[in-house]
Amino acid sequence: MMEEKEKFDNEINERMKEIVIARIDAQVPSNLKLAMGTYGEMSKEEMIEHVKKGDETGKQIVNRHILFLRALASGEFTRAIASVE
């Protein structure tokens, strides 16, 4: 049972990584760099590499994409930007 759950979680994580990589690839122009707190600055290619490796920086990048997608799905993002002139 635990093994099945672990396998399921891993599959979800792998799919999430794929989605994040596709989003970075489609949305970030190659002249831009991201400065992300103590994780430092990184190019588009470096961001993708961190996500592929699944290191701490990669996890943080995935986490921030999830937070944004949740805000989009829940309507929080749309409500917030509609609240300003």
Binding site: N31, L34, A35, G37, S43, L67
Partner: peptide, 13 residues
């Protein structure tokens, strides 16, 4: 302050 990493994009040019 920030409970998440403060981040920004910059243009390498």
């Amino acid at each position: 302050g920030y409970v998440l990493p403060f981040e920004f994009y910059f243009d390498s040019e």
